[in-house]
Nucleic acid binder design. Structure first.
Lengths: 349, 349
DNA sequence: CCTTAGCACTCTACGGGACAGAGTGCTAAT
DNA sequence: ATTAGCACTCTGTCCCGTAGAGTGCTAAGG
């Protein structure tokens, strides 16, 4: 692939920004006039033909203007686009949207997805914190009724998870209290990811303490906690914003996308992928995702953290034709803000 | 209003069932032929003209067939329709969809909405149990960090609610344990609706016990619990099923409806209304709801209970043109099944 | 060699007219 | 009271013809 000249890039940029605004194929005249290139439309046509050969643009039909391909968009995002910086007023608006918020983490995440969807007029998504990253705070075992025990797990960051545990024989609450006291002591401040190991270790070390019931309960508990850890969750908010986009006017398209969202596991995988690697904002175009149903959408995401540990991902989902230059900084800022709000106040400056 | 003759009713029924199947205006020929009425189309036309005058049918334009009005539909539902009974196989299918379920109430409700949406090919809704109806099981106060306390409330039925509490001065965990021990004793088996009163009563009676911190914490706790009680929640599942219905082909219509769902409070009010009164299945047609955005949809709902106390409502939301005779028994059966699953096993036969 | 003006060509979107089909309401006969 | 028959109305569709947008190519100019 030959290097693109400065002018080629300008044309590509012109086509893309114009297309993002209007949603219509962009013709050579418009590019020449509206975008301050000091050449004639004929020249632009030649450049556009080249860009088409490179696979950056395509024509829906012979006598139409050009539309960027996914590849062209990717190139634009990676090499050409300049981010707008967020105006202070906008930052303030976003901050304020969080301000009334209670300190509850769940509430905070929920609000984040709402803020993103509102400010970007697309769907906002939030991937729940990987529990295994956070630390143990408290566990509670409660006998609801015969052979049914509710396990409640609280992480230091304030996430509460509960899960039912069906048990072969009945245990009274008094016993359970004893067990949970032990667990709370054993697990103090342990990262949730290491709970399993710690419990096993504890059982080996304190052998004397355990009767059969005790150790069996602990094992069950450990299993429940483990399965809780492995389940991720996502919030999606503002899906209806997607319906406004004219590219989703055909119901059938829209339906595919929305049902893809209903199967959360796919979405989770998608978001997961953007978390593992780089720190800043990442963009996944539909064609780069595994699933065909999602081929017409685009995800702009950024991880959020607590201190040094990556917790999860927030992002915006919309059509391929989105105002990236605006949305990217919004996502970035929001992720940073969320990280900040999650920061342990005791550690804060 | 004059009484409808037997034949008038048959015609109305024919038009409605046909319309429900096809979604197209129904003409006199079709009614005469397909529905075993032993009269000519001309006669049917006369009857239809009468029904139109009564406001039960209307014509979208002069040379089209008839479509039932909301009023006609209402009459049909109230006086004419015969329910299909659910085949045993279908019952079995529904039962099985629940079978793998853990005993956790939250999970159970979630599954219910999914089952309803799957079996009826529409959106399934579940209104959360009114907490105030259930009984107190356990409360836990946990100091997450300076001045932040997590209040966790568990009802006897296994519902877990948590809420953050921001507190002016710091309290150590040891104190909190003392308070929660007191609360757990005081509130044992009290209906959640009466918690407030009980706490106040307790504070008056055990005056001696209380230092200032103690009573203030209790008051705060009581307030948090109260606000938790007042918040309802709904699950909606399978919204994308709605997109399949041809009546929602126009995106704009659909958007209105889906955004009406995003504002949950409106939905909650709607569902609430169907809970208060009668016991069996209730149907609310769009025009009967308060909100204009919902005027094109229809809700089929049935309350569920635990023992004698009404807890909440389950239902199906779809277009006005739905297969009522099938969906109604599904909703009814599912509600009954859910009630059964929620039943305290100790009380069960 | 790059740029540009000019032009023929292609494709779409849109509006109008003709036409078939569906369904009605009315009238007159049974 | 019912029904056959018929004129009438309205819709949806197909088929133009045309205007407009945008292209690619060619030939001329710097």
């Amino acid at each position: 692939m030959t290097e693109l000249t400065r002018r080629d890039q300008q044309v590509l940029e012109a086509v893309i920004t114009d297309y993002i605004q209007t949603g219509e194929p962009v013709g050579s005249r418009v590019v020449a006039k509206r975008h301050g290139l000091e050449v004639s439309s004929a020249t632009i046509r030649n450049v556009m033909a080249d860009l088409e050969e490179l696979g950056f643009l395509y024509q829906p039909h012979t006598s139409a203007g050009r539309i960027p391909t996914d590849r062209g968009l990717r190139f634009y995002l990676d090499f050409i686009m300049k981010f707008k910086t967020l105006k202070e007023e906008e930052r303030e608006l976003i901050r304020r949207a969080f301000n009334e918020s209670e300190a509850d983490v769940k509430e905070l995440l929920h609000r984040t997805s709402r803020v993103l969807s509102d400010f970007c007029k697309q769907a906002g998504v939030v991937l729940w914190p990987k529990l295994s990253m956070t630390r143990f705070k408290h566990i509670e075992l409660i006998r609801l009724r015969t052979r049914q025990i509710m396990v409640i797990l609280i992480s230091k960051s304030g996430l509460v998870h509960h899960r039912m545990l069906e048990w072969e024989e009945d245990i009274n609450q008094h016993e359970l209290d004893k067990y949970s006291r032990y667990l709370n002591e054993l697990l103090e401040d342990v990262p949730l990811g290491e709970i399993k190991a710690r419990i096993i270790e504890g059982m080996r070390k304190d052998k004397a303490l355990f009767d059969q019931l005790f150790s069996k309960t602990l094992e069950m508990t450990q299993r429940v906690v483990q399965s809780t850890l492995e389940n991720s969750e996502v919030y999606i908010e503002g899906q209806t914003n997607l319906l406004i986009n004219p590219e989703f006017a055909q119901v059938e398209r829209m339906r595919k996308i929305l049902s893809a969202f209903e199967d959360k596991s796919r979405l989770i995988r998608l978001l997961d992928r953007t978390m593992s690697t780089s720190p800043g904002v990442r963009i996944v175009l539909g064609s780069e995702s595994e699933s065909k149903d999602l081929s017409e959408i685009s995800l702009i995401s950024s991880p959020y953290r607590r201190g040094d540990t990556l917790l999860g991902v927030v992002g915006v989902i919309g059509p391929l034709r989105m105002d990236y230059s605006r949305i990217i900084p919004v996502v970035e800022f929001t992720a940073a803000l969320l990280s900040d709000l999650l920061e342990d106040p005791e550690n804060r400056a």
